[in-house]
Structure formats: C-alpha cells, structure tokens
C-alpha cells in the first residue's frame, strides 16, 4: 500500500511489540502523504515521547523527536518559521492529553497549519502500562489496580471545542477510513486532528481481558459507532450502547489559520 522509500531501512528492527496498532497508523499516514504527492524533503515529522512518538525515527525525512508533551510547541516553531514545509505530528494519549494538554488546546486554538495524529492506546505504553487521561473508567492498569476511577478525556471533542479546522476519529481497525481521514486532514488548511484508537495488547489488553490482538481489535470495532448514527440515536432519544465511542468526521471548517503557506 505504501512505497518503501519513505522508510529508513537501516533502522530495523523497530521497537513496537507484536500486535501493536501503531504500525497500522503509520502506514495509513504514509499512504495519505503519498496520495498528496508530498516530497520527502518538504515534509517534517515531529513527535514527543512515548511509543507513538518513535514513529518519525523510522521515516526517511527530516524529523524532530522531542521532549514529553511538547511536540506541538516544537512543531509550531518549525511551521511558523518555514510555512513551505509540510508538518505532521505523531503523538499519543499520554503525550498529548496529560503532560501536553495545554499545548494541545493552544495549538488547536491557533489553528497552526499542520496535521496531528494521536495514537490513543488508552495507556502509558512505553513505561509499562500506567493509567492515562484516556484510560476508560474501570479499566485496570498498573496505577489503577482497582479500576480507573477518573473520567476519560474525549480527545476529538476537545480538539473541536478548542478550534481545530479538521477533526476525525477512527481506529486501527478502520484502515481505509483512517487513511482517508488523514488525507482530508493534510488537505485542510489549519490544524487537523485525527485520533486513531489503537490496541496495546502488551500493556492494556493483558490486564483487561483482551489478551489476544484480535480481541482488542474486535473490541475497537464493536464499540465504534458512526457520528451520524450516534446523533440519530440522541435525536430519537434512544440510549447509546455502553462503552461506545463515535468515529467519523467530527468537524471540517474554515476558521482563520496560522502558518498557511501563501
């Protein structure tokens, strides 16, 4: 599906566990980038810290693997200084929503022209599976041994509220839809935020009765409901299924954006 010349072949083997969803998201992103016809020397990948943030290191472009939570602030500097470069940020739920939450809402508010792809695996994967701001209520992690007692952030809704021009959510099961959403994000001037819910069999599934990769993917598939369907249920006053989350395009608009190449 993608041309191998976007990968650094001298960086293999990669660090991702067997069954990790991050590879799928990287593939979908690069497929979308290729579809745009972007050149390698005009594209910069930026990331913070965590499993997701290792992605730029495997891609054969200029890339900035930065500090925990700060990827969007670094990316803002790159894009504002050189608006002719395409900037794509890979981040995760811990990086973006916990330590980087303030940068997230401000990057959306500024609507800096870049595409942000969050691999949301509901856990701090790199450090061994601690609870994050997107860990679902009741879920077991090493720091929520009695079940997560805090409510979770809805990252996509947060991005909509904060002002991003394009927001979509899909999962690592929805490969075609995710690729299309990334491509739409790349095309939209302003900040595009794509939340990709992914499986972490090693550190999330193992503790939550989703030991097999296929169980996790099935869980993502069966709990995803289309935004349109969700809205219809709400309008009809019908209940939303337990544990369901919306997928699809949440917003596509044309608010004033920064760093758009003239």
């Amino acid at each position: 599906m993608i041309a191998p010349d976007w990968f650094r072949d001298d960086r293999l083997p990669h660090i991702y566990c067997t069954g990790c969803g991050n590879g799928t998201v990287i593939n979908c992103t690069l497929a979308a980038v290729e579809e745009m016809g972007w050149k390698r020397d005009e594209t910069v990948f930026v990331s913070g810290i965590g499993c997701s943030s290792r992605a730029p290191g495997y891609i054969l472009t200029d890339s900035l693997h930065t500090t925990h939570g700060r990827a969007l602030a670094f990316a803002t500097g790159v894009k504002m200084a050189r608006p002719d470069l395409h900037v794509v940020v890979f981040t995760g739920d811990g990086d973006l929503a916990a330590i980087g939450g303030n940068h997230f809402i401000h990057a959306c508010r500024r609507n800096v022209d870049m595409t942000v792809i969050c691999m949301n695996n509901h856990i701090y994967g790199m450090t061994g599976g601690q609870g994050s701001p997107t860990t679902p209520a009741g879920a077991i992690s090493t720091t929520t041994p009695y079940g997560m007692s805090e409510p979770a952030f809805d990252l996509a809704e947060l991005a909509v509220a904060a002002g991003a021009n394009y927001v979509a959510r899909w999962t690592s099961y929805h490969v075609k839809e995710l690729t299309k959403a990334v491509a739409a994000g790349l095309q939209t001037p302003g900040l595009a935020f794509i939340e990709a819910r992914t499986q972490c069999p090693t550190n999330y599934g193992r503790h939550n009765k989703l030991r097999r990769v296929s169980d996790m993917i099935e869980h993502l598939r069966s709990h995803a409901i289309l935004v349109q369907k969700h809205d219809r249920l709400v309008a009809e006053g019908k209940p939303i299924p337990e544990g369901a989350f919306t997928v699809g395009e949440l917003v596509r608009r044309n608010r004033p954006a920064m760093g758009v190449q003239r």
Partner: peptide
Amino acid sequence: SMEDELASIAAVIGAAWT
C-alpha cells in the same frame, strides 16, 4: 506568544532547525 515558557523554548528550537 506561546502558552508558557516550556512551549516558548520548544518553538524556538523548532524554528532553529529550519
């Protein structure tokens, strides 16, 4: 004008790499 000093120095480093 960034949202805090962590972001300020981050943006500066990003810009410097261009």
